[in-house]
Every structure is written in structure tokens, then in C-alpha cells.
């Protein structure tokens, strides 16, 4: 969330418009829930056999925010690169690109992981959730609203990753203690040092999700 968001007076529990969100959500949102259910039914999704030459692109299908997206990828492209550069989903941020900051955190099968350390082809057959996927139409999700209400950021660059880490934590543990929250976001750095507010936002998000 950048400065434009913080300048918006109409923020709060009711949520607000995130520009550019609609252009991402265009394709295939309807067929998505069916595909999601089929994948969830398998206890341990094992991806299909695959062979890719170096530097040639191969068509794969990624299940992102409830929709199947076909995309041409090189074997060396990370999930982070494909989300941002191929799908235009810039909610997921590139920070260190070496698994040490957490700005690129997404959920894979509901579990937080670093998109910078994940090859796109390795995410085939998995359910990927990005920051954009936490919204319902124009409405922010509960974790996003909690971060706004608790002012849980300064520059905002780490915020999408923090929100995804908290979302993943609450899906697994809806009523975390402060210690569990601290561990839950311990894979996400905030150089502004907004940690106290982030912990508070996580607690508020747990409350908001229960409503």
C-alpha cells in the first residue's frame, strides 16, 4: 500500500477501492471454485511429469486467486516474476529476492511461502493466493482492514507480505496468542519497525475474521 492509500480519507472497516484491481481479476473467476474444489480433494497434490528445455518457454497453468491462468514460462522464472510481470499482480512485492525479507509472501495451498524462492513451474497444480485474492470485489478483506485500522505500516513496502503472513497464520490458527503472532510474522522484515502495530493488527484481524 503506497502513499495514495494513506491519503484516502474513506478508509476503515468499510474498505476502499484499490485502483487497478479489476484489471487483474478479469479472467476465469467463475470456473475457479470448481477447479479449487478438485485440487483440495486430493490429499497430497503431486504435479504431473514435466520436461522443459533451457530458455524455451513452455505453457503452464497456474491457479491464482480462484482462477486458472495459462501462461508461457521459462524454467528459471520464479512465481514472483510471473505474478508481477506476466499477470500484472503487483500486490506481491520484490524485496531481497533471496528469501530473507518476506515482501513476496504468498499463500500456496493456504500456507505462506516466499514467491521469490519458488519456481513458477513448481507451483503448477497448487492453489496460489496473493494480496489481490484477499479482496471481495472492491472490499478489502479483514486482515487488510485490520492493518489500515491499526496503522500497521509506515512506508508500506513490506505490508503486502506481512498481510499474507497474518492471513496464513489465521487460517491455521484463528485465535493466536501474541507469541504465536510474533512467530507467525517472524519471516517478514519491516525496516520501518512497525512491529508493535503489526502484532496489534494481527490480533484485530483475528477479531474481524470472527464477525
Amino acid at each position: 500500500m503506497g502513499s495514495d492509500d494513506q491519503g484516502n480519507n474513506d478508509v476503515g472497516r468499510s474498505g476502499f477501492t484499490r485502483r487497478g484491481f479489476i484489471q487483474i481479476m478479469g479472467t476465469g473467476a467463475v470456473s475457479a471454485s470448481l477447479a479449487g474444489a478438485a485440487i483440495a480433494a486430493r490429499s497430497k497434490p503431486v504435479p504431473p511429469e514435466k520436461v522443459m528445455d533451457a530458455e524455451n518457454t513452455v505453457k503452464i497453468s497456474l491457479h491464482v486467486n480462484g482462477a486458472q491462468h495459462a501462461v508461457l514460462v521459462e524454467s528459471r522464472w520464479t512465481l514472483l516474476y510471473v505474478l508481477r510481470e506476466a499477470f500484472g499482480m503487483t500486490g506481491t512485492k520484490e524485496g531481497c529476492s533471496r528469501g530473507e525479507c518476506g515482501a513476496c509472501t504468498v499463500l500456496i495451498d493456504g500456507i505462506p511461502r516466499y514467491a521469490c524462492m519458488t519456481l513458477a513451474v513448481e507451483a503448477e497444480g497448487r492453489r496460489i493466493t496473493t494480496l489481490e485474492g484477499l479482496m471481495s470485489g472492491e472490499q478489502l478483506g479483514p486482515v487488510q482492514n485490520a492493518f489500515l485500522e491499526e496503522d500497521a505500516y509506515q512506508c508500506g513496502y513490506c505490508t503486502p507480505g506481512q498481510i499474507m503472513a497474518v492471513e496464513g497464520l489465521l487460517r491455521k490458527n484463528p485465535t493466536p496468542s501474541l507469541d504465536e503472532i510474533r512467530i507467525g510474522v517472524s519471516g517478514n522484515l519491516c525496516r520501518c519497525g512497525a512491529y508493535t502495530h503489526i502484532f496489534r493488527a494481527a490480533q484485530k484481524a483475528a477479531d474481524l475474521k470472527k464477525r
Binding site: 504435479p47 504431473p48 511429469e49 514435466k50 520436461v51 522443459m52 528445455d53 533451457a54 530458455e55 521459462e74 524454467s75 528459471r76 520464479t78 516474476y81 519456481l119 513451474v121
Partner: peptide, 12 residues
């Protein structure tokens, strides 16, 4: 960008 490599995901 990572250096290029071929990729194989065998089933056995």
C-alpha cells in the same frame, strides 16, 4: 533473473 537451466520433473 536466474541463469538458465533445463528442468525435468520425473514421476519415478
Amino acid at each position: 533473473m536466474l541463469p538458465s537451466f533445463s528442468y525435468v520433473r520425473p514421476e519415478t
